[in-house]
Design a protein around this nucleic acid. Structure first.
Length: 272
DNA sequence: ATCCAGGCAGATG
DNA sequence: CATCTGCATGGA
């Protein structure tokens, strides 16, 4: 993969980077399509435009270093794909979605976003998060940052309901209060089991949401989130519960489980 | 109208 | 430990 920096933009030439697949594979919610494979993406307090043109991906932002890490540009996805091709059941998914990259997202934003995602659909999730940012995120001039913990502490359960969060309003209200002191540091530095248990201590965070947080924000790539789509795709007579599917495939794919999960999820959801 | 959406908490065997 | 039910909201 070749990266060149030209003023305010990065230009990336890679077989394995497609903006549409990367943003629409369900790992992130705060983006808007503004053209053909052309998006505005908001992450934390930052904003970028990302689009594909003549085989290259362009990223325009005032914070290029942030987005270079955010889009995981130092990881060799060709190598990951080669290894996953060793599993015959993944061939069609990987071939159809070979431009997906797993983002490095902010931990607080990811926790709140995936609490909102529970028993919800992507359109509503995006709307609730957008209204949350507008309601209490810092005005960056033209857009709003994702709220900080301190900003969310000011909202009542009633406020959260008015944004459309439904029964998740209580979860968010409790969780921002549980994440006190060095909670985030302990999440980041714990081993997989410790971090997983810590996440389950938050309200609105169960097995699936914890796996998403570990994969999308903490880069624990052994995580294998099992939602309704993955369960439908993987369910067999033997693997007849989400937990059995999770345990089987996280063991089968090892540290590539998270990548495999995203290829399957996007492929299944887009009609594969 | 009924079901579903990137599930979870709390109660019950 | 595993299984069951209620849950806010809006679109299909």
């Amino acid at each position: 993969m070749q990266i060149t920096r030209d003023g305010i933009q990065l230009i990336i030439q890679s077989q394995n980077f497609d903006p549409k697949q990367t943003l629409e594979c369900g790992q992130v919610f705060r983006y808007n399509e503004c053209g053909d494979n052309d998006y505005i993406i908001y992450a934390g307090a930052n904003r970028a435009r990302i689009f594909k043109s003549e085989g290259s991906v362009h990223i325009e932002s005032d914070e290029l270093d942030y987005f270079e890490h955010y889009f995981d540009l130092s990881t060799d996805y060709g190598d990951i794909i080669n290894k996953l091709q060793g599993f015959s059941e993944l061939t069609s998914s990987v071939n159809a979605c070979s431009g997906i990259r797993i983002l490095n997202q902010d931990i607080f934003e990811t926790i709140i976003s995936f609490i909102i995602s529970a028993n919800n659909n992507i359109g509503r999730i995006k709307g609730i998060i957008e209204r949350l940012c507008t309601k209490c995120g810092t005005d960056m001039g033209g857009y709003h940052a994702f709220p900080t913990r301190e900003q969310l502490l000011r909202l009542s359960v009633q406020n959260l309901r008015e944004l459309g969060a439904g029964f998740r309003a209580e979860y968010i209200f409790s969780t921002v209060r549980l994440m006190e002191g060095d909670f985030i540091d302990r999440l980041s530095h714990g081993d997989n089991i410790t971090t997983y248990k810590l996440l389950l201590s938050l309200k609105g965070v169960g097995p699936k949401v914890a796996d998403c947080i570990m994969l999308f924000a903490l880069r624990r790539t052994n995580s294998y989130p099992v939602d309704t789509w993955i369960f439908k795709a993987n369910k067999t007579a033997e693997l007849d519960t989400p937990q059995k599917v999770h345990d089987y495939f996280s063991a089968r794919y090892g540290d590539l489980a998270g990548y495999a999960q995203q290829y399957i999820f996007y492929h299944t959801r887009s009609g594969g």
